[in-house]
């Protein structure tokens, strides 16, 4: 391998890693938040809202992320949405994640035992209090494993953003690979790096699950 070329490319690769992690973390935070809004709207909103959100979720889940990013980045300007690569990638990842998170969270809401809500109503909690104090916390415990899984998926989907020239990790490393013809080595570096981050996420998930164990349903 050409070490001089590597040293030269290293700052860009590190910048790329930072961009990847930043976009990924934003997706991990705002994806579930937007997903929660969608899940609550579908579960507690009027019927038309449920139908509209359902259609949105189906479209996002039924099309490849790559195609969505092409449409957003190259098609966006035609509807007045002229975004730079990074904001477009960030928006795309959040919306993509939100569709999946909304289904995970909706499943969690449905899985909360009906009796827990009845007990809350009998104690006198109103609808908003039942959602805030009972449903959302219990849902969080139920969906944690599925969310960790989705966080891992989002990390790997960030690699797609290289296609619309977001200066992220995959773009930086593949650019180095093309310049030095070290294709295999750069692919291996990419695989190892994503896998390492995935393992860290899994560990975080397992430690959260262990911490939440005492809250388990009985």
């Amino acid at each position: 391998m050409n070490f001089d070329a590597l040293i030269e490319a290293l700052p860009e690769i590190i910048d790329g890693l930072e961009v990847t992690i930043a976009i990924w973390l934003a997706g991990c935070l705002f994806g579930p938040l937007l997903g929660l809004a969608i899940a609550l709207g579908r579960q507690f909103g009027p019927r038309w809202l449920d139908r509209g959100l359902w259609a949105f979720v189906e479209v996002i889940r039924g099309t490849p992320f790559l195609v969505q990013m092409f449409l957003l980045y190259y098609g966006g300007p035609f509807i007045g949405l002229d975004l730079d690569p990074t904001p477009a990638g960030l928006l795309g990842l959040i919306v993509y994640g939100a569709a999946y998170f909304s289904e995970i969270l909706r499943g969690g809401l449905i899985a909360v035992p009906k009796g827990h809500v009845e007990a809350a109503l009998c104690v006198g909690l109103d609808r908003g209090q039942v959602i805030r104090r009972i449903l959302l916390p219990e849902m969080t415990l139920l969906v944690l494993p599925a969310c960790v899984n989705m966080w891992v998926v989002l990390l790997k989907e960030t690699a797609i953003l290289s296609i619309i020239t977001v200066p992220e990790f995959t773009l930086a490393v593949t650019a180095f690979g093309s310049a030095t013809f070290a294709f295999t080595q750069s692919a291996a570096v990419l695989a190892l790096a994503y896998w390492g981050l995935t393992e860290l996420t899994g560990r975080l998930g397992r430690s959260l699950e262990a911490r939440f164990d005492r809250f388990r349903l009985v």
Binding site: G115, G124, F215, R216, L217
Partner: peptide
């Protein structure tokens, strides 16, 4: 109301379960 399945809220302590209505309602 007391239920066959108890229906305690799993994310709150025994004290938290009993105090919830006092606090919120």
């Amino acid at each position: 109301m007391v239920f066959q399945q108890f229906n305690l809220w799993p994310h709150m302590t025994a004290l938290g379960n009993v105090a919830e209505g006092l606090r919120q309602v």
